[in-house]
Design a protein around this nucleic acid. Sequence first.
DNA 1: TTACATGCAAACTGTTTGCAAATAT
DNA 2: ATATTTGCAAACAGTTTGCATGTAA
Lengths: 135, 135
Amino acid sequence: MQPDQEITLLLQKAGLRPTAQRLALARVLFDGSDKHVSAESLHEGVNAAGGRVSLATVYNTLHQFKAAGLLREVAIEGDRSFYDTNTSNHFHLYDVEEGTLLDVDHEQLKISGLPALPKGQVIDRVDVIVRVKRR
Amino acid sequence: MQPDQEITLLLQKAGLRPTAQRLALARVLFDGSDKHVSAESLHEGVNAAGGRVSLATVYNTLHQFKAAGLLREVAIEGDRSFYDTNTSNHFHLYDVEEGTLLDVDHEQLKISGLPALPKGQVIDRVDVIVRVKRR
DNA sequence: TTACATGCAAACTGTTTGCAAATAT
DNA sequence: ATATTTGCAAACAGTTTGCATGTAA
């Protein structure tokens, strides 16, 4: 768990006012361990931790944190969006049956032979999802 | 455009009755060129082609075609699902600004150093999305 | 004739938004 | 004081479902 002062600073550097709700959410999200959350799971998490944050604010805050580069959205097929507190270069291991997500350090995995891009285009980033299942 | 007979056979091999609606959808989808469709775009496409298929049936049929291995769902962050008529091993180039999707042949792109999998797990497949933007 | 497929409209889920009240600066 | 943030509830988009009708085998 990070001291509140650091979290406050984190928000201020992102140009976000350190309100009670954003602090509560940031405390849950940025406790030092990498996390993958949905709006719903974060909402439950923060309220379980004693916070009092409406679901609408959770959505707003996820967007703001994403825009500020504090979170990364992960593209998983399906109905809900996932956000990753690990914003560094890495890939994902996705358990198709469980619906769970694990990080894979990008040191381990290498990609070569990226195609020529349409002119005027540049790579934003490369998402790799290793889909695994039982058997 | 494939002859109707082949399309009928395609459906029958998948254990799907070749109804008028499924034929109309399959004709649009499997015309020989690789496509990425959403339920909405396919619905428009089939009706523009003279078909008469309700949106609910488009959804049902997309699921059935996916289950039968005729289509693959592509994980793109966002509100709607995309289906790919190219079910072979390949990757995607995703234009973040336009929301458009291009295939990348997997011969071109190589991945090495896949992590050790949790025991009892096996790779279902690897999704790679090269996100590009202008600049 | 019988099991399966379709269309419609209603239901549902995740997400977004308008606005009045509350809060940070 | 003022601009931003919040919560609520209503709106919304995409998707799914129940059921009566239609169709393939």
